[in-house]
């Protein structure tokens, strides 16, 4: 199967423009970028995709083992780049995809021109002096509630509980048109995401990097943005006057502006 169909790759924007690849985080799909894509498309070749298990990706390509670590996702990013022969890629990774981009850029630095890490966190769980913002118990609580289906789509959840895998249409019309996620895959992705620890990888990044954080973000609090900035040699840090973990939705203009100015500053 081609990476293009497996990851539901969508190409838009200026055909001969520099390549900007937008990678969504845990919880949604490429729809996350809908407010920033139009402006980016004026100047750049925009590459959108869904991680396997999210959106309109090929769910049958999902394997528990492959996607139990962020490396599996980084591998998918590199496969897309190779298949579409993308070079000098400006990779924009939101949330967990920021670390997926870090891993991909360490493996094939020649492939990437720049990294833009949007609300990144290399580790969500506190560890010694490191403050990720969550205790181990907090994350266990999240995983437990996802495991037991007590969180999330109550309506869409009913068919899941009732065990009607043979009649997916029962759940279909109830689920949202955006950010479709298979609950089983979402649980595994949450585990992979929130138990990851990529602190040691940050220093290995050799690609010019911009870190974008929000002034108030419960998932990636300011001290985490500062940590990422301090660990990646020569990186820049921009703090947006925005609330929440998804500035591309809550502050799309400022986010777009930060991406455009860093991406188009060709040296």
């Amino acid at each position: 199967m081609s990476a293009r169909s497996r990851n539901n790759v969508v190409l838009t924007g200026k055909e001969d423009g520099p390549v900007v690849m937008l990678a969504h985080g845990f919880g949604c799909d490429q729809n996350m970028w809908r407010l920033v894509t139009p402006t980016l498309a004026e100047e750049f070749r925009v590459v959108l995709f869904d991680h396997v298990g999210a959106g309109r990706s090929d769910l049958s390509a999902w394997q528990a083992e492959r996607y139990a670590a962020l490396d599996g996702y980084a591998d998918d990013v590199l496969r897309i780049c190779r298949e579409l022969d993308l070079r000098q890629v400006v990779f924009v990774g939101h949330s967990v995809s920021a670390m997926i981009g870090v891993l991909a850029a360490i493996r094939e630095p020649e492939r990437f021109a720049k990294l833009i890490l949007l609300t990144p966190s290399p580790r969500y769980v506190d560890d010694g002096d490191y403050r990720g913002g969550f205790s181990r118990a907090d994350i266990e609580e999240l995983l437990e509630s996802l495991d037991s289906n007590y969180l999330g789509w109550s309506a869409a959840m009913a068919p899941v509980i009732m065990g009607n895998p043979d009649r997916p249409e029962l759940g279909e019309e109830l689920t949202n048109s955006f950010c479709r996620t298979d609950p089983r895959i979402a649980r595994a992705f949450a585990r992979t995401t929130f138990l990851s620890d990529n602190r040691a990888d940050l220093a290995k990044v050799t690609v010019p990097t911009l870190v974008i954080e929000c002034a108030s973000d419960v998932i990636a609090p300011p001290q985490v943005g500062a940590f990422v900035h301090a660990q990646i040699p020569g990186s820049l840090l921009v703090t947006l006057d925005a609330t929440g973990h998804c500035p591309q939705l809550s502050a799309p203009e400022a986010t777009t502006q930060a991406i455009v100015s860093f991406a188009s500053d060709w040296r």
Partner: peptide
Amino acid sequence: LTVGGKLYHETHFAPLLRMQGQIGGVALE
């Protein structure tokens, strides 16, 4: 919200609400 709920809110609820203008029937604590 509980911590799990907070994470869910930030990663699912709030983005969908922004994109769709509404979101319904979500189980939280």
